[in-house]
Amino acid sequence: MPLARLIPCLDVAHGRVVKGVSFVGLRDVGDPVELAKYYSDGGADELIFLDIAATPEQGATMTSVVARVADVLEIPFTVGGGVRSVDDASRIIEAGADRVSINSAALRDPALITAIAHRYGSQAVVVAIDAGEGVVHTHGGRVATTTSTVPWAVEAAERGAGEIMLTSIRCDGQRQGYDLVLTAAVRSAVSVPVIASGGAGCAAHVAEALRVADAALVASIVHENPAGLPGLRREIEALGIHLRPWRAEQ
């Protein structure tokens, strides 16, 4: 099995990184390209960009961000938010992203998962699920649907999703740890890898998540202190999790 992955997630709106990145060492903390490169140099295994203000008119802005990121980044990255069609996915992937993440668009039109997987392979399709109270939510977690979480994860994988990114609405932003029970339930129901998301407050939380998931998404824990990423990796490894061998540049 591949090594556990630590994946910083950057929220992007109108081509700028938003939400909680505070760091004096960067020239421009709002520049997704500069921050991506910084996290890559700090030992991120992969990155995720979520376009949180995605509208059809914003598509071109995100595509140009993706292209600029692809030109400087030598680790894989996923782009989500605003992917509603195969054409949207093509635009993002052909600009240089490795994978696209789809959320409510996949719920509305599950055939979209298969269509993107058919064109680019399952490894290029992440289905993101915002889960709470046993059901899938949309609109950034604000609207509950009647779709049950675990069966939806199973269906998404059967339709061609190459990975499930599971966010617990209850845990997200609380910094009290990931929802390990839900993550384990989803992971045992599917045969594709699972990214745990929501709730990291310290290295121990991430290490716990990586015992039940293939990867862990981190946001505020790294955005509050981007320079602390190598240290976070070391702490997670000290807790017995095998991340990829990586050395900070001298």
Binding site: P2, R5, Q123, S191, V192, P193, D214
Partner: peptide, 11 residues
């Protein structure tokens, strides 16, 4: 065997 697709870093 294992999770498919096989995603991630390996030595």
């Amino acid at each position: 065997g294992g999770r498919v697709p096989r995603l991630g870093w390996a030595v």
